[in-house]
Design a protein around this nucleic acid. Structure first.
Lengths: 144, 144
DNA sequence: GCTTGCATCTGTAGCAGCTACAGATAGTAG
DNA sequence: CTACTATCTGTAGCTGCTACAGATGCAAGC
């Protein structure tokens, strides 16, 4: 028994509300092939159903985890293929994890350097600004 | 005694080499008002001197520390004013530091979430992929 | 039927911070 | 004079949206 008649369909505004994704962003995702083009009403309005909502939620959560649109396309392709074998998905996630880890490492380095600079700077206490000094001094000079 | 004659001037290619900044990037910085327009040769080629090299090095190091071009513009304005009082520079640096710190915090959260996902995923070990599951499951469901 | 008022439509441009290319000159070495 | 390289300008592309303008769609009230 097909339950088509019970699948309540919604317009883009409702989809946006339900998923917390901006309307313009939804259209953007469709344009770049991340979401399928939904059927249109007589007046050419996009009409979405439950499946679209699930799909967009998947995309939103992936974005919240920082996956690139390319990664998400790949993950969605795996889902579409009914691929339950984890290998490919794990590979994508691990690569992303390594990327995030690398970003954290370099941001921490940055944080330390900035903290050193700002700690050295005590306004009113001296005549020259160590921040400006640091930026004016060559890396080689600072290393020595 | 003016030592103008001893200031060796260089073309953009040499400036790029000396500072490690891409030629196109140098022209871009000039276009967006980060660097002053240098004098031109007869044939309309940009001619730089020592001061330009110093300036571009300042910009490069600031970029390496993650300052935005807007921040760098502000820092350069302080230098130009001969402002040796640290207050303004420190404010800029502290704001940036807070920004970096915030980024680290949210990336760490991300890292943990990703690690949980990938740890749960043992390819070949089970029938459904926990990564895909996680992305398919609503945040509310996961929280409960 | 007609108007009001909102939702949605398409297409385009903007954000940061570059990077890359095409096609035109400038300058130099042989 | 010819090659060859350097530089020039102007424009478009990258990621992931976001914001507009101007044109329609559509339901409700009068």
């Amino acid at each position: 028994m097909v339950t088509n008649s019970r699948a309540k369909s919604v317009l883009i505004g409702t989809l946006a509300e339900r998923t917390g994704v901006n309307i313009e962003t939804i259209r953007y995702y469709e344009r770049v092939g991340l979401l399928p083009s939904p059927p249109r009403s007589e007046g050419r309005w996009r009409v979405y159903d439950e499946e679209h909502i699930q799909l967009l939620n998947f995309v939103r959560r992936s974005r919240e985890l920082g996956f690139s649109l390319d990664d998400i396309r790949a993950l969605l392709a795996l889902v579409d293929d009914g691929n339950t074998e984890c290998g490919a998905a794990k590979k994508i996630a691990l690569r992303h994890l390594a990327d995030v880890h690398g970003k954290i490492t370099s941001l921490k380095r940055l944080e330390r350097a900035l903290k050193n600079m700002t700690d050295a700077c005590r306004p009113g206490d001296q005549s020259s600004c160590p921040i400006i000094e640091a930026l004016n001094t060559s890396a080689e000079a600072r290393a020595s």
